[in-house]
Amino acid sequence: MSLLSLATVAKHFANGVEALRDLSFDLAAGEFVSLLGPSGCGKSTALRLIAGLLPPDGGMIGWPHGKPPIGFVFQDATLMPWTDALTNVRLPLDLQHVPRKAGNERAAVALARVGLSDFAHAYPRELSGGMKMRVSIARALVARPRLLLLDEPFAALDEPSRAALNDDLLRLWREDDLTVIFVTHSVSESAYLSSRVLVMTPRPGRIAADIALPSGPRTRLSAEFLEIERRIAAALPSADSAA
């Protein structure tokens, strides 16, 4: 069933630059969709429009079955530096007036799911980049969203952390029966994670290709995986034509 439907969505920035034009796609519940494209192609803008953080200038963003609870993960972990991991994760529950005790319990469970039980009382500055991102994911999941939006969440991480977080994200997606929109500029990351890849072209941003992938799990560097990477890369406009 269709969860979200974008029809000819357009967005201009205050400086007149056209960020998105005629952006249209449907999203079914349970999909793991990657929005793939070069920097500045409007991927992040599209994500903010879907989250309702920005209003579109044209077109429609429709929720056929009502807008579900949404979790959002930014490129930076975006934690509150003045408080510990547990309180950071509890933030969405605090805003929903969940009692403190129940909130702490749910936040502890969320931290355990990303493997950070032992770091509940660590401050963000005491955590590595990968751990901070795990806290950020725990915070996005603690309020039990149906739709999870991630804006290049692992771009700043080293390769081992990134691979580990990729696997964790897939596990959480399956366990919670989530729908995920994952913004990335990495062909390999989108090939590894997605059930479907939407390739975007820049200036103005629009969908260039819509690639459905066989269901996972996938093994990196296997022949099947490399073939998927090749298919995605072929749909990506070359750097020259993108400029």
């Binding site: 903010r48 959002f72 975006t78 969405p92 929903q96």
Partner: peptide, 14 residues
Amino acid sequence: ADFNLVDLMRLYGA
């Protein structure tokens, strides 16, 4: 204040 943190608050209806 961190813009993204403010956006996150708004997302949760703060």
